[in-house]
Nucleic acid binder design. Structure first.
Lengths: 165, 165
DNA sequence: GCTTAATATCTGCCAAAGCAGACACTGTAT
DNA sequence: ATACAGTGTCTGCTTTGGCAGATATTAAGC
């Protein structure tokens, strides 16, 4: 069960590493979309949180922390801002009074729907030279990348005995 | 000349958007590699800068700003730290005295080489379920994504699977 | 019922990053 | 030479994110 060696220390170069490329692609993508979001008075992160709530990717602060990979304190303050502007409402859960359920207000939902066409347009623009097959393959590979080790332990050691082609 | 419509506002969902997936992949990748870097006393960003200098992706602060997509002030302070620890040296350019050339010291180069095997191991771990063809295709698609609209000085090589097996 | 551990959220403090402006230097035109 | 625009770097000020600790609630053990 020798592990697959896609890279080796002797020949490793940043510019051909998927680590470098993914990081750079993320930065360029945000840079492309962010101005459109900020023109409507939101930070990119605020927008992302509103989308998470709309799409049911998160229902409380904890889940937003996990999704965003952000600190819980940062998320608290982020929600504070969105709540102050009445795009999100906090509602203490009755089942578990530790939990605070986050609910998109009507204004919040309206704002998300208003912004989506712009974001979609930007995404389509970024992918304008891609065929449908390429987008679908990129999506598949990114899903695999995320699922492959996001779920399995990534705790610093070589615990990965799962998988194994 | 109708643009390719990979996404449409009516059906857009965060979890299937390459924007969301790339951002998440980047976050997970950093999360996987960062602990190994910090165990050696560096922040992830400091590591990246050292790699850029090693691989000639940047020679001065301006180029690091463009590569990292960071503010020039942030980069100045980042270089301050690396210079204080003597991994990087500032050298005023004689051709253009506005420019400050950044040079990896011997200690800096040594440190990079010391860290590379760990980073390579982590990358290979993240990609352990990927075939060589998949890594190469992911690399190609990310290059295309970046080059397509980034338009930055991207001396692409396109190849992914160096290092063989 | 009381104690302890775990969970969800929030608050204070510090570091990192963005923004705007200052400064130094270059190149060009007058 | 002087003036002016453009560029690279650096410095304050503010915002954001990370870390640690506090509070409130739940769950399990005695």
């Amino acid at each position: 069960m020798h592990p697959t060696q896609h890279y080796s220390p002797e020949t490793y170069k940043a510019r051909s590493s998927v680590g470098y490329l993914i990081k750079r692609a993320a930065a360029l993508g945000i840079e492309c979309i962010e101005p459109a979001i900020e023109a409507r008075g939101f930070t990119f992160t605020q927008w992302v949180v509103l989308m998470y709530l709309r799409d049911g990717l998160a229902f409380n602060a904890k889940e937003i922390c996990l999704q965003l990979r952000h600190d819980s304190g940062a998320v608290t303050r982020l929600i504070d801002q969105l709540e102050a502007r009445e795009f999100v409402r906090r509602e203490r859960s009755v089942d578990d009074r530790r939990e605070v359920k986050l609910i998109l207000t009507d204004a919040g939902r309206e704002m998300v729907e208003l912004l989506i066409p712009t974001v979609v347009e930007r995404l389509n623009f970024m992918l304008r030279d891609f065929s449908a097959g390429e987008v679908s393959e990129l999506t598949r590979l990114l899903h695999k990348f995320i699922g492959g080790f996001g779920a399995a332990g990534n705790t610093g050691d070589g615990a990965g005995t799962e998988g194994g082609e």
